[in-house]
C-alpha cells in the first residue's frame, strides 16, 4: 500500500475546509501537531469546530488567529506557561467563540464511543455538577452543524434498579483528526512513543486521519516490533514528514518543550496587537518546516534536543 505522503500545505488544501470539526492530538505542552496548525492559519481556514480534551498550545494559536468558531473541551491552557490560555480566555470572555465544557474522562469516552460506533457512553463522573446542569452552547445550535442534540443526559441505570443515575454522553466523529507521531512506516503504520493521550481514540473516531511525523521509516522495520505500534497502516489517510513538527511542544524521545518559546508566546498572547505580531513573526512567513526551524535557530533546537536514553532534555532551564 503506497503512502499518501504530501506537504502540510497540500494536506490542508485537500482535507480541511471551513467549518470542519477537528480533533487535535497531543495534550497541553506535548505532541501538538504544530506544523499543520500553522498551515491551517496560513491558509485562513475559518469557523473550525474543535473537539479536544486538554489543549494546549495548538488550540491557543488557532483560536487567536480567528480560525475557530466552536470548542468542546475539558481544559484550555498551556500548563505552567499559561494555566488558562490567554487567547482562549479572551475569546471566551469576548464571546467570539462558543465553548462547551466537559471533563477529560467525558471527552475521552466520547472519542471512544465514536471509535467503537456506539450511540453513547455512560459514566458517573460529574453527576450533580454544573458540567451536567449548564450548557455553553446556545439552544439554537443544538442539532445543527454536527452539534449534538444533547450535551449529555442523566438517566436511571437501565439495568440495575438500585444503580442510581448515570450520565450518557454523545459520541464524537470528527471530520478530521490531526496528530503528531514519532514514526510512520512507509506504508502508513503509525507509532506514538510515550503516552498516547487520546490520540488513538481520536484517530479511530475520525473520518479523515492526518499524521505528521518526525521520521518515515521502512515498513518492515516498524513491523519488527508491532507491539509498539499505535495505528494500522490503512487508517492513516495522509502523512507529512515534520521534523520538530510539534515545536514548541514536546515530542518524547526527540525533543523537550521549548521554555524560551513558550514564555515568549505567553507574553505575546496577552494582548491583541502583540499576538498579531507573533503571527506575523512566527506563523505567516514560513511556507516550510525548514524555514520555520531556521527562525527557531539551531542553538534553541539543540537546547531542547532529547537525551536518547531519557527522552527529554535533562537539565534544561525550564524557568
Amino acid at each position: 500500500m503506497a503512502l499518501n505522503r504530501m506537504s502540510a500545505a497540500d494536506a490542508v488544501g485537500k482535507y480541511i475546509k471551513d467549518g470542519d470539526q477537528i480533533a487535535l492530538g497531543g495534550f497541553t505542552v506535548n505532541r501538538n501537531p504544530m506544523l499543520m496548525i500553522r498551515e491551517i492559519i496560513r491558509q485562513k481556514i475559518r469557523d473550525l469546530y474543535l473537539v479536544v480534551h486538554s489543549h494546549g498550545q495548538g488550540m491557543e494559536l488557532l483560536i487567536g488567529a480567528g480560525c475557530v468558531k466552536r470548542v468542546e473541551l475539558a481544559y484550555g491552557g498551556v500548563a505552567r506557561f499559561a494555566p488558562t490560555g490567554h487567547r482562549f480566555k479572551k475569546a471566551f470572555l469576548d464571546k467570539t467563540i462558543e465553548v462547551e465544557d466537559y471533563s477529560n474522562f467525558h471527552m475521552t469516552l466520547r472519542f471512544l464511543a465514536g471509535a467503537m460506533g456506539l450511540p453513547f457512553m455512560a459514566t458517573k463522573s460529574g453527576l450533580n455538577t454544573d458540567i451536567v446542569r449548564r450548557s455553553g452552547f446556545s439552544a439554537a445550535c443544538r442539532g445543527t452543524d454536527r452539534v449534538p442534540e444533547h450535551k449529555l443526559k442523566v438517566i436511571d441505570d437501565p439495568l440495575d434498579p438500585d444503580g442510581g443515575e448515570v450520565i450518557v454522553l454523545p459520541p464524537l466523529k470528527p471530520d478530521v483528526a490531526i496528530l503528531h507521531a514519532q514514526f510512520v512506516g512507509d506504508e502508513g503504520t503509525c507509532r506514538i512513543c510515550g503516552l498516547t493521550f487520546a490520540d488513538i481514540e481520536q484517530a479511530k473516531a475520525a473520518k479523515t486521519v492526518i499524521v505528521t511525523c518526525e521520521e518515515i521509516i521502512p515498513e518492515d522495520i516498524i513491523r519488527q516490533e508491532p507491539d509498539q505500534n499505535s495505528l494500522p497502516h490503512f487508517m492513516v489517510d495522509a502523512v507529512i514528514v515534520a521534523p520538530f513538527g510539534a515545536h514548541p511542544t514536546a515530542c518524547h524521545k526527540f525533543y523537550d518543550y521549548d521554555p524560551v518559546h513558550l514564555n515568549l508566546f505567553k507574553n505575546m498572547a496577552r494582548e491583541d496587537d502583540c499576538f498579531a505580531d507573533y503571527l506575523n513573526e512566527w506563523v505567516y512567513p514560513f511556507d516550510s518546516q525548514e524555514a520555520y526551524l531556521e527562525k527557531v535557530g539551531i542553538r534553541n533546537l539543540l537546547k531542547i534536543k532529547a537525551n536518547s536514553a531519557l527522552g527529554y532534555a535533562p537539565g534544561l532551564d525550564r524557568r
Binding site: 488558562t84 477529560n104 455538577t129
Partner: peptide
C-alpha cells in the same frame, strides 16, 4: 474564565 475541569471533575467524582 479558568481552564476548566481537565481531569479534576473525574478525580473528585471517582
Amino acid at each position: 474564565r479558568f481552564p476548566g475541569s481537565g481531569g479534576a471533575c473525574d478525580a473528585a467524582s471517582m
